[in-house]
């Protein structure tokens, strides 16, 4: 008795979603809930359609002029709804699941970005571009990034020849880039050995003792916000005075290009390659 009803409902539901998908294939009003997706959307030439971003979205410069909907982990649902978005672009890396659930419950469309590694970035861009109705731009951008990645791929495979690298994200307390970050992927891509690859989280609080023991050949210090990273990192570099990198002056200060999985990573890889050369 109940089965036909379910079938009818299912067909109805299916046709409805297909309809909705077609209708929304070129969303006009986009909200981005993460700095990385904001950068990607701008790179896809969708800057004009973005109506809202998080308060962390500071790149490109135009992003700062967009309406703010709050932070990444605590966006204001009210602010999002008020901007009447056609689609809300979210990420599994920083946005809580509940926000997605709540937005869907209010029948707002969401797109969830899931790529987390450098290798997944081009494909992620293609999919996102597809959902935004700008396939060609997506293909172009993805190709560009793929070419960039290929250019820097290192053939080195012998473990002995690999340089050991540590990427310091913050000196006090010591946070380094571990596995599952674009930084780690870039380091591996360049045929280097990330000394923190054993860590079990992406930005582990690292033991200085262990860092000294792993005697990195190059120390890379990422850009911090708010204060001069060179001053802040003096303390930790003093403690690392005996490791080869510091002894031989192979300490390199880089920009923040690799902090977000966005098109800028290629520039970040370039910087990293220049450091270890």
């Amino acid at each position: 008795m109940k089965r036909p009803l379910i079938v009818i409902l299912a067909i109805f539901g299916l046709s409805f979603t297909v309809c909705a998908a077609e209708q929304a294939s070129t969303p006009k009003r986009i909200i981005s809930l993460s700095p990385a997706t904001t950068e990607i959307l701008f790179s896809l030439g969708l800057g004009g359609r973005i109506v809202g971003v998080t308060s962390f979205c500071d790149r490109p410069a135009e992003a700062k002029k967009k309406s703010k909907i709050g932070g990444m982990s605590n966006p204001s649902l009210e602010a999002i709804v008020r901007l009447k978005p056609d689609i809300v672009v979210m990420t599994t890396d920083g946005n809580p699941r509940e926000v997605d659930d709540r937005l869907r419950a209010m029948s707002l469309k969401t797109y969830v970005w899931t790529s987390r590694t450098l290798a997944e970035l081009p494909q992620g861009i293609r999919k996102l571009a597809g959902a935004m109705g700008v396939q060609e731009q997506g293909e172009e951008l993805a190709k560009e990034i793929e070419e960039g990645i290929e250019k820097y791929r290192s053939e080195k495979s012998g473990a002995g020849s690999r340089k050991k690298v540590v990427y310091i994200v913050w000196p006090e307390p010591l946070l380094v880039a571990g596995p599952g970050t674009a930084i780690h992927d870039a380091v591996v891509l360049l045929g280097l050995d990330n000394v923190a690859s054993r860590a079990s989280s992406s930005y582990p609080r690292y033991s200085i003792e262990e860092l000294i023991r792993s005697s990195p050949d190059v120390v890379i210090v990422g850009k911090g916000t708010g204060m001069d990273i060179r001053t802040v990192s003096q303390g930790v570099l003093k403690k690392l005075a005996t490791v080869p990198a510091v002894r031989n002056g192979k300490v390199c200060y880089v920009s923040d290009h690799l902090y977000r999985l966005a098109p800028r990573v290629i520039q970040g890889i370039e910087e990293l390659a220049a450091c270890v050369r």
Partner: peptide, 12 residues
């Protein structure tokens, strides 16, 4: 504040 440095200093 969206200042990451501040967050980390507070972590300290």
């Amino acid at each position: 504040s969206s200042d990451e440095g501040l967050r980390r200093a507070v972590l300290w």
